[in-house]
Design a protein around this nucleic acid. Structure first.
Lengths: 230, 230
DNA sequence: TAGATTGTTAATCGATTAACAATC
DNA sequence: TAGATTGTTAATCGATTAACAATC
């Protein structure tokens, strides 16, 4: 789930909102990291609505968590608020984006260009959110060469080389289930450190690679448990 | 997250693998419920591969969890294995499917027929997994009447009535962000007890309604935190 | 029977919450 | 200044793991 990064030498600028000592990503619970995107999203919504600052209490009620949790989560990374005032929305939003490394655009490769792959390739939500699909790949020679949104589908065998050449370290798997592990292996070979997996399989990857599953079927299958009458 | 079901009167058939006393769904951690679909999926894979029984140890290594966790999870629901032997794969799989109420087909309504909605409507994975899309709805009159896979898109205003008439209690939201809460309200009005939400918003729903989020952007945004070099 | 593996309890680990001193 | 709200610590809650008696 996590890797073993240690950030290099702390700076001595005491005005930084980041704590002066180094943060080891391994010291911060992954569950906290997974909440940060929701904080950013909600803060950006507040910016749109014209607000300038929020208290942890207000933010918490918007998100549906406790104020204590928000304050504790943020305290892992530094001090971002003002007692009596709350948080400056733009500042906090920017700070979390920096923590998550969302202050840049991440190119991604997409593996598997069936129905699902096509839908993902055409999805507009990624680019607004620091991500760009930069390469499409499929194992089926019949699909290779097809053009999808200005990108040409390339042969699966070229993934690893393409990733290294283009400095891509994020991959999306949208292959059929049985080819997903193979796809993951290729991504790892290409130097992937983050994999978004739409295939219904648990992938085996080295410890330094993070994987997140997108699994609507499992989500549905767990909800029916709670449904009352038949 | 959970509701307040109590199953009616326990049976006296002592051969049942289900415990004779009643299980209150609220007594079982949601995190356990969310793992059950993965157990089923993995067991079905084992059936395909021709195996007849598995130990908790083997199953655990396939899934990437501990054997203790699997045994403890299952113990919430009854006794499914044989000491010295392990679990009969078909039997365990069937038992968990019954617990999750996957021993039937669940009709669903899909709200929002933009790009994403179309992709979801065309997805084949649901029907193999106890779910059927039975109704398509959109707020845009221009889309109403359009035929997608044998289903005609109906006006959003008809959702609640359609759900009640057809006895549908599962809904999928694929509307734009700003219309998602409105869509959720309509689903609740129609008697929904389970909502799969693809829109990037936290939905407000009554306590007896379960919601699960499908949020690939947040998943990506939390993974970049762990990426090493820039 | 001996060996293997379950089901379950108690110990451990980790995350959430409550409380409050610090401080804007 | 008084009031509000943060940042942080300690207490609580909940989930995971280890260990092992029960038993196939």
């Amino acid at each position: 789930m996590t890797n073993h990064v240690t950030r290099a030498g702390g700076t001595s600028d005491s005005r930084l909102t980041q704590p002066a000592y180094d943060i080891d990503p391994d010291d911060i619970p992954d569950i906290v990291i997974r909440r940060l995107p929701i904080y950013v999203r909600t803060l950006k919504g507040l910016v749109e609505s014209g607000s300038r600052s929020v208290s942890s209490e207000e933010l918490a009620s918007l998100i549906g968590v406790t104020a204590a949790q928000i304050r504790r989560d943020l305290s892992y990374f530094g001090k971002f608020g003002k007692q009596g005032k709350g948080y400056d929305i733009e500042h906090l939003s920017g700070a979390i984006e920096q923590i998550l490394k969302l202050d840049r655009q991440w190119p991604m490769v997409l593996l598997g260009m069936g129905r699902l792959g096509h839908a993902i390739a055409s999805y507009r939500g990624f680019s607004r959110s620091s991500f760009t699909i930069a390469g499409l790949f499929d194992a089926d020679p019949a699909k290779v060469g097809e053009k999808v949104n200005d990108l040409v589908i390339r042969p699966m065998s070229e993934v690893a080389d393409a990733m290294r050449e283009e400095g891509i370290r994020v991959g999306i798997i949208a292959t059929p289930r049985v080819q997903a592990q193979e796809a993951a292996d290729l991504l790892v070979k290409g130097g992937a450190e983050a994999i978004l997996n739409y295939a219904p399989v648990i992938l085996r990857v080295p410890e330094h690679v993070t994987v997140r599953e997108i699994d609507p079927v499992s989500a549905l299958q767990s909800m029916t448990y709670y449904i009352d009458r038949d």
